[in-house]
């Protein structure tokens, strides 16, 4: 046996394969692959989630009518334009944190992070998937409320950026929170409290004037009331004021969500 021959490097050695792991092309390829991965993984739970979203959307549109002995035209308008906002909130601020907590417990969270795709592409893929999942429930809530209460809406193109910004904000903050807080019990506590605060203490399906002044002042810097304002502006004419401020507040919360996400993604490298 000629050991020398086996130890010598081959004279015409093949160059090592090189892959460019930077640039927009690499990032877009990573995003496409992560979307395929996320969609394939979501097949297990997405149909059930979609059904729950649809039921909750329709359910919220119906149930707020029970709280009033007589639903006046103004009340109906608040319910019809508020329930789509409520339907957008749970997926981002509740389902994403719950899903990340579940993945942490199962150990799949670290596996996903270890995949050879840029982490920003992984985060973007999650944003896109959840935004898409939140839309059917929102649309059904709007349709049910409009038909049930017989309100006349004045839909403008403003609804498109309003809905997209609201979905993006909820998902960004939910994702940032889920990544920044590693304790699943704490996450569960925060999301349950959020549901309670949003359903009862946020002026989404009732006029802001019904709240005490200090709570309304607080809501002007929290995202929930501002979500209702921008969506209501896209569905009605002359019902809201100070729209620019609401868009700015929502933008600031979205950026805060991204900052939290970016901080955690960077820290874990």
């Amino acid at each position: 046996m000629n050991t020398t021959a086996t130890l010598q490097a081959p004279s015409a050695a093949q160059p090592l394969p090189t892959t460019t792991r930077s640039g927009i092309g690499y990032w877009l390829r990573g995003l496409r692959q992560m979307l395929r991965f996320d969609v394939a993984r979501a097949r297990q739970w997405a149909p059930m989630m979609a059904v729950i979203q649809l039921l909750m959307g329709a359910g919220m549109a119906i149930m707020y009518g029970f709280f009033y002995p007589e639903v006046s035209q103004a009340t109906a308008l608040y319910i019809a334009t508020g329930t789509p906002t409520l339907a957008l909130i749970p997926l981002g601020l509740v389902m994403i944190p719950a899903s990340v907590s579940q993945q942490r417990l199962e150990g799949t969270f670290d596996f996903t992070w270890s995949l050879p795709a840029p982490r920003t592409a992984q985060a973007t893929s999650t944003f896109l998937l959840y935004t898409l999942l939140s839309l059917p429930g929102m649309i059904l809530a709007l349709v049910v409320a409009t038909v049930l209460y017989g309100v006349q809406l004045n839909v403008s193109l403003l609804i498109v950026p309003a809905v997209l910004l609201c979905a993006l904000m909820a998902i960004s903050v939910g994702f940032g929170m889920a990544l920044a807080i590693p304790n699943p019990i704490l996450i569960g506590l925060i999301t349950n409290t959020l549901i309670f605060v949003v359903l009862l203490f946020s002026p989404i399906v009732y006029p802001p004037g019904n709240l005490p002044d200090w709570l309304l002042t607080l809501h002007k810097v929290l995202p929930f009331y501002n979500m209702a304002v921008v969506i209501r502006a896209g569905l009605t004419m002359g019902m809201v004021s100070d729209l620019t401020r609401s868009f700015l507040v929502l933008g600031a919360w979205t950026v805060a969500g991204w900052a939290m996400t970016g901080w955690v993604i960077g820290r874990r490298r």
Partner: peptide, 28 residues
């Protein structure tokens, strides 16, 4: 546990909006 979580969350929603606790039964 996921089924339990799902039922518990749904119950919270149903109890809040569809049971006559915060409003009279006549409004249903």
């Amino acid at each position: 546990p996921r089924t339990t979580q799902l039922i518990a969350s749904s119950l919270t929603f149903v109890v809040f909006g569809f049971t006559p606790i915060l409003f009279p039964a006549e409004q249903l």
